[in-house]
């Protein structure tokens, strides 16, 4: 990209950014990580307990896992709809965003937001505005890894 006349050079921009950073309070990374770790772990423990309970009532492990995923997604969707999910995520961050609950939230949030623009072009058009990039990158990299895996398997 060519530098336009009105913007400063890279060094000046870097220097100013560094200068500005000296005035900016740092996010508390360690504290946030600990909170995310505890919340994420807790979420997994609860999920495991639910799965065990499902399996105890006679379901196979594979079906129980699918049912559990549905339960997690539904509860995240419900919490988003009630307006609680963003409050929880603000506190525990990645703890609820990294698990599948975060994915559910990123689908429901735009659906609520763009309801006013109509079901088809509003909700339909914007539903994947947050999840879309993640899906594209996720599926592409999965396909890439799959191809590599296939070649390695072929060599064996």
């Amino acid at each position: 990209m060519s530098k336009s006349k009105g913007t400063p050079g890279k060094e000046v921009a870097k220097a100013y950014e560094k200068y500005a950073m000296t005035f900016t309070p740092k996010p508390r990374y360690f504290y946030n990580c600990v909170k995310a770790f505890i919340a994420g772990g807790l979420l997994c423990v609860i999920a495991m307990l639910i799965q065990n309970r499902i399996m105890a009532s006679g379901w196979e492990e594979k079906d129980a896992a699918a049912l559990l995923t549905i339960i997690l997604i539904c509860s995240a969707q419900l919490l988003t709809g009630l307006g609680w999910f963003d409050t929880i995520a603000k506190v525990v961050g990645a703890g609820v965003i990294v698990p599948i609950t975060g994915f559910a939230n990123s689908m429901v949030a735009p659906a609520i937001e763009y309801k006013k623009e109509g079901i088809v072009l509003g909700v339909g058009g914007k539903l994947f505005s947050l999840a879309g990039p993640v899906l594209v990158c996720g599926i592409s990299s999965a396909a890439l890894v799959g191809i590599i895996y296939w070649f390695m398997g072929g060599m064996r």
């Binding site: 900016t24 309070p25 740092k26 996010p27 946030n32 988003t80 709809g81 307006g83 999910f85 963003d86 929880i88 995520a89 603000k90 961050g93 609820v96 965003i97 975060g102 939230n105 990123s106 429901v108 949030a109 735009p110 609520i112 937001e113 763009y114 505005s129 947050l130």
Partner: peptide
Amino acid sequence: ERQFRMPLEHGNQKPPS
């Protein structure tokens, strides 16, 4: 918020700035 950033109910953490 909806024009420049994220949908309101999207869960994310904002930096202090």
